[in-house]
């Protein structure tokens, strides 16, 4: 069964469409990521799915309920972890959890709260004010708070933005484990290729408010066209040799460099056997990546696409006035 169903979702700010006819489904128990540059519509999607803002068109169902018509049914079944850590710094970890429990109307939350603090190694800080926590600890506490109501779906907006490498890896493990241990569907947004690739079962690539492609990381990479092997040559080379080599999609000879595109990595050996390596100075194997996929699907790299986001926000500000 699908945890999230989005059909033709549109969100317009004035004439500007932050989301333009967006459709996708997220299966139960998946880690699903919305991947795209800043300003692509990721946060807007989360805001609509968490009932914070109504869409201007289309429909969205979360945990089986319509986000516009049954917002409270949705709110009972979801949790949300923001990109910026949102906790009350004047209160202790337990007090933050207590407010969350009261707002979600949970009874018997205390044991679960203690178990969660224990699970996230925060037991020693139960009664300490959150203001003194490190960013990693704060993020952990936020996730603990999000799990308090045993949600069916947890929304995580840019989970590792601005975090150091070690904390980032820690959080990836944590999200993976939480997904398994608490069997919760995870919907996250990110603009880090590596994060989407390593963490997610399936990815939807979004750019300028439109979904460009949906699939597993492997499927998306395949769309970019397979592995590329680049040979630097010392002498003239006869391209004819490559005819009949297994898996070769295309080859290109340019300025003493031969680039051969293979449909799959497993054919690299076949290719190497077919080539007279005495004429080769060096070999480079480029694996397909989400970067190459993004480039192929949108026509620009994610960094190039990002440049637009200032303009985008300026536009939204004007539109909402």
């Amino acid at each position: 069964m699908a945890s999230i169903v989005v059909k033709g979702l549109t969100k317009a700010y004035g004439n500007f469409k932050a989301l333009d006819d967006v459709s996708f489904e997220v299966e139960e128990g998946e880690i699903f990521s919305l991947l795209g540059p800043n300003g692509a519509g990721k946060t807007t999607t989360i805001k609509v799915l968490t009932t914070l803002t109504p869409p201007t068109g289309g429909e969205a169902y979360v945990a089986g309920f319509n986000v516009v018509r049954q917002p409270n049914k949705v709110r009972e079944r979801i949790s949300w972890v923001s990109a910026e850590v949102i906790l009350d710094d004047d209160l202790t970890a337990m007090e933050n959890l207590k407010i969350q429990a009261s707002l979600q109307g949970l009874s018997d939350w205390k044991d679960r709260a203690r178990a969660l603090l224990d699970y996230f190694d925060l037991t020693n800080f139960t009664n300490q004010r959150v203001g003194k926590f490190s960013t990693g600890m704060r993020k952990k506490l936020e996730i603990a708070m999000a799990l308090l109501n045993s949600p069916e779906v947890i929304f995580i907006d840019e989970p590792t933005i601005g975090l150091d490498v070690a904390t980032r890896r820690m959080l990836w493990d944590l999200i993976r484990n939480v997904n398994k241990k608490y069997s919760v569907t995870v919907f996250l947004t990110t603009h880090y290729m590596e994060e989407a690739d390593q963490l997610c079962h399936r990815i939807a690539i979004i750019n300028r408010g439109k979904i460009v492609a949906v699939g597993t990381p492997a499927e998306l990479k395949a769309k970019a066209g397979g592995t590329v092997v680049v040979f630097e040559l010392s002498q003239g080379f006869d391209g004819e040799n490559l005819k009949g080599v297994k898996g070769v999609l295309e080859s290109q000879l340019k300025d003493g460099t031969l680039s051969v595109t293979l449909d799959d990595e497993s054919h690299v050996v076949d290719l190497l056997r077919a080539i007279d390596l005495k004429k080769v100075k060096s070999v480079k194997i480029l694996k397909p990546s989400l970067d190459t996929a993004f480039l192929k699907l949108t026509g620009s790299t994610i960094e190039e696409a990002e440049v637009d986001y200032r303009k985008f926000y300026a536009m939204i500000r004007r539109a909402t006035r």
């Binding site: 968490t50 009932t51 914070l52 409270n72 709110r75 009972e76 979801i78 949790s79 949300w80 923001s82 910026e84 949102i86 009350d88 969350q100 009261s102 707002l103 979600q104 109307g105």
Partner: peptide, 13 residues
Amino acid sequence: RFGYMKRLLVTKA
């Protein structure tokens, strides 16, 4: 400003 209102509004409170 600190986003706390979002935290409140995504609950059924």
